[in-house]
Design a protein around this nucleic acid. Structure first.
Lengths: 214, 214
DNA sequence: AGCGTAAGCGTACGCCGTACGCTAAGATGG
DNA sequence: CCATCTTAGCGTACGGCGTACGCTTACGCT
């Protein structure tokens, strides 16, 4: 016994993702990842090109979890499924929000783009409209994910933190911000799902209108 | 002579922003910032709470550059001016894109939110609509800024890099991505300005429609 | 058995953020 | 004018980081 399973890029990336999922990106160091695998830091370099490449591989591995809604006929529900899945994947791996656009696209990122663009193009959108629609959807997903992650990420008690923020806020000078924060704290009707869908629908309505008008 | 101007939070933050503007966030260390001011690292701690607080101060300082379009009567042109100004500020300080949502909002961030929300609310949008409109505009600005910054940030010759990317791409498997990248490379009709406005108009059209329908 | 190849790792270097405590200069009160 | 207090600046040091370099060990060949 005691012959450990050998290292591989796959195992290293998986260990790094696990570390990042609980502990954030800052918990990922060559030494900590190696320790997770009962190895030493320098051993990783046989399988991975360095820390930057490791992070890129982590990102692409996680993007592979996204549902690309490949058999979906209707373009709008396809885009909806992809967008929601992408959002959920990012929220499941909160560290993604900081970095997913910061590195050169890997294969899964390209497949994600292809799936979204394909849905728009086959749905009858022009090249130019599809171009902007892709960016709009990506921005929406990433923006919402960042907002959610930063809200309940560093903060375990959202309510408490929100109240504290409001206390420090000058409500005379910033009444609308106060209003906005209160809305984030209202639990019932404005849950994540409807918030996300509201913006996405608004956006896809616009795309649909432009699609029809050519 | 030779009595240097004393340190202060303001001077430290300004020096750090300068370093980040040319050299990226990674060029900002307590030692490098101190060196920029002819001082030593530990001296900074008399005026700044540590690196994290320094970065937060850098962000808020830069957000103070945004034009808040305060005297603007028409809500739509006000939002447009604010959004474009914010976009330009981020592009002017490319390191902002990585971090601007990652820290707790400072006073300038709050003023930015207040300006946008005020424009929507005074323009006749409901609380809920203004809430979503704010997020949508923020996402649009940040998303576009990130896209632009990552495109021409690490890449001095955009054209060359795009062609190289296309070479490595399997155009059979990803025809729409190829199309999309080509569109990014086309210089003339699709410049930054019109790209940014196209998405923003699409978005504000949606807001306007919902505003009218109540 | 001998050998080539490659996986794993020990050591060391130059960075980083920052805790701790000293020095020296200026402010304050007599 | 001196004594005392405050505070800006900094020297040193510690633990952690990414990684260059080269050694060792294990394994698959012939």
């Amino acid at each position: 016994m005691s012959t450990r399973t050998p290292l591989s890029e796959e195992r290293i990336v998986a260990a790094a993702v696990d570390l990042a999922d609980d502990g954030g990106l800052e918990a990922v160091s060559m030494r900590s990842v190696a320790a997770e695998l009962d190895a030493r830091a320098m051993s990783l370099y046989r399988h991975v090109d360095g820390k930057e490449a490791l992070v890129a591989a982590m990102i692409d591995a996680v993007l592979g979890e996204i549902d690309l809604a490949e058999a979906e006929a209707d373009w709008r529900t396809a885009v909806g499924r992809i967008a929601r899945s992408a959002y959920e994947v990012i929220v499941r791996h909160p560290w993604m929000a900081q970095v997913w656009l910061a590195v050169r696209p890997g294969i899964h990122r390209i497949q994600l783009m292809e799936a979204l663009l394909g849905a728009f193009r086959r749905g009858g959108c022009s090249r130019r409209l599809s171009h902007h629609a892709l960016h709009a959807v990506q921005n929406h997903v990433l923006g919402h994910a960042i907002t959610k992650v930063t809200f309940d990420g560093a903060i375990e008690d959202l309510e408490e933190e929100g109240r504290r923020f409001l206390e420090g806020l000058d409500e005379e000078a910033h009444p609308y911000v106060a209003e906005h924060v209160v809305e984030h704290l209202e639990p019932s009707d404005g849950d994540d799902r409807s918030d996300f869908d509201f913006g996405l629908d608004l956006l896809l309505d616009g795309v649909e209108r432009l699609r029809r008008s050519g």
